[in-house]
Amino acid sequence: MNARVETDEQGRKTAVDSCEEPCSIEKGMRILGGKWTGSILWHLKDGPVRFNDLARMVGGASKRMVSTRLKHLESHNLIEREVIETRPLGVEYSITPLGTTALGFLDELRDWYESLPEKAQT
């Protein structure tokens, strides 16, 4: 990930041996970097949650946005969707073993943010 930088005769800097685009960080951010995505995974860590309950937990996101993010996470096998045969029908989401692998650095991200000086927090 660390590219070497060389300077030419005119003083221009050029990256040498840079990572191919997109690099692993960019690819990972494409999966987890969407707004509400980390929050949704975080709320599923303690067990399955029904859609309406999850939408309420993710304050500020519309149900449509939550649904979009859930489909995205499901397409990457980070969560599972289960239809519950009740009246009315219900849908419940749970985190997969692959999804739980993201919880460690989401926890670290939370700790990092909470350690920032108040001026840096938005």
Rank of each mutant, 00 (worst) to 15 (best):
G99T: 07
I84A: 04
H76K: 10
I79D: 02
E118P: 08
L106Q: 12
D111G: 08
L98T: 12
I84K: 07
E80C: 08
K71L: 06
R81E: 13
K71T: 05
T100F: 01
T101D: 07
Y93S: 06
R87P: 10
P117H: 00
L78M: 14
E85M: 06
G90A: 07
R87K: 10
A102P: 01
P88M: 00
S75H: 08
V83D: 10
L103H: 05
H76F: 13
S75D: 15
H76Q: 11
E80V: 11
N77R: 13
P88L: 01
E108N: 12
S115R: 10
E114P: 05
I79F: 00
L98C: 02
S94A: 13
H72V: 01
E74I: 00
Y93C: 01
E92A: 15
T96E: 04
G99Q: 00
V91N: 07
G90I: 00
L109I: 05
S94V: 10
T96K: 02
E85H: 06
D111R: 11
K119N: 10
L98I: 10
E92D: 08
S94F: 03
L106T: 15
W112D: 14
S94E: 08
E114G: 02
G90N: 03
L89M: 12
Y113A: 15
E82M: 07
D111E: 14
K119T: 12
I95Q: 05
L98Q: 11
L78C: 08
V83W: 03
L109Q: 04
Y93M: 04
R81Q: 12
P117M: 01
G99A: 01
N77T: 11
N77D: 15
R81K: 15
H72T: 00
L78Q: 10
T86V: 04
P88I: 00
R81A: 11
F105L: 12
G104P: 04
S94Y: 02
E85D: 14
D107E: 14
G104L: 06
I84T: 05
R81N: 09
L103P: 08
P97I: 08
W112N: 09
K71Q: 07
R110I: 13
L109W: 02
T86Y: 03
